[in-house]
Deep mutational scan, measured.
Amino acid sequence: NQASVVANQLIPINTALALVMMRSEVVTPVGIPAEDIPRLVSMQVNRAVPLGTTLMPDMVKGYA
């Protein structure tokens, strides 16, 4: 199964993503693939992302 990017902490709106904020986990539904974690670093989220939430492409500015 494909691992997705999951929030490792609460990520406030407009926060630039850092490695420590993300982990990979096999979840349903599938979100952003875990292999894209390096690409996500320094991109901003466009909403608050609670701990344990799967990151979806529409949550990250400039990802989709």
Rank of each mutant, 00 (worst) to 15 (best):
A7H: 01
Y63A: 03
P38H: 09
A7K: 01
V49K: 01
V45R: 00
S42W: 09
M22I: 10
N46A: 11
L19W: 12
R47Y: 12
Q44C: 14
V20G: 08
P33Q: 06
N8T: 13
L55T: 01
L17Q: 01
M43D: 01
T53E: 08
P50A: 14
V60W: 02
E35C: 09
V20E: 10
A7P: 00
K61S: 13
V26G: 04
V5Y: 02
Q9V: 11
R23E: 05
P29Q: 05
V20L: 14
T28H: 10
G62A: 09
A18Y: 05
A16H: 13
R23P: 00
T54V: 13
A3F: 10
K61Q: 12
A18I: 10
A64T: 12
P57V: 07
E35R: 06
Q44M: 15
G52V: 01
M43L: 13
V45C: 05
D36F: 10
E35H: 10
N14P: 00
I37M: 15
S42R: 09
L55C: 03
M56V: 06
M56F: 09
N46M: 13
P38F: 13
M56L: 13
N1G: 14
N14C: 15
N14H: 14
T54G: 01
V20I: 11
P12K: 08
D36K: 09
L19Q: 06
A7C: 04
V30N: 15
V5P: 01
N1Y: 15
V45Q: 00
M59V: 06
V60F: 04
N8M: 10
L10W: 14
M43Q: 07
V26E: 15
M22K: 00
L55W: 01
D58E: 13
P38V: 10
Q44D: 04
P12V: 06
V26C: 07
A64P: 11
S4A: 03
L10Q: 12
P12R: 09
G52S: 06
L17F: 02
L19G: 05
K61I: 14
V27N: 03
L17H: 00
A48W: 09
L51R: 15
T53H: 14
P50T: 09
Q44R: 14
A64L: 13
V20P: 10
A64C: 08
L40W: 02
R39C: 15
I37S: 04
T54D: 02
M56A: 07
Q2C: 13
L17P: 01
Q9K: 13
M43T: 04
A18L: 14
A48R: 13
R47T: 10
A16L: 12
N46S: 11
Q9L: 12
V41L: 15
T53N: 13
A7T: 14
V45E: 01
M22A: 00
R47V: 10
A48Q: 14
R23G: 06
T15I: 07
L51I: 14
T53S: 14
V20D: 07
E25A: 10
R47E: 15
D58L: 11
P29F: 03
T15D: 03
M21E: 00
Y63K: 03
A7G: 01
A48V: 13
V5M: 02
K61L: 11
L51M: 15
V41P: 00
L17R: 00
D36T: 07
V41A: 05
T15W: 06
V60N: 00
I13Q: 13
A3I: 08
L40F: 02
I13D: 10
V60D: 00
D58M: 11
T28V: 11
A16S: 09
A34L: 03
P29M: 04
N14T: 04
D36N: 12
M59P: 02
A7V: 09
G52K: 04
E35I: 08
A34D: 07
P12A: 10
P29Y: 03
A48T: 12
V27I: 06
M21G: 03
D58N: 09
P33T: 06
P33E: 04
R39P: 01
A64H: 12
G31R: 02
M59K: 01
L19K: 07
L40I: 08
V60C: 03
L51W: 15
I13L: 08
T54L: 04
P38Q: 12
D36Y: 13
V41F: 05
E25I: 06
V5G: 01
S4F: 03
P50G: 11
I37H: 01
P57N: 05
L51D: 12
N1A: 15
Y63P: 03
M56C: 11
T15S: 07
N1K: 07
L17W: 03
T53A: 12
L17N: 01
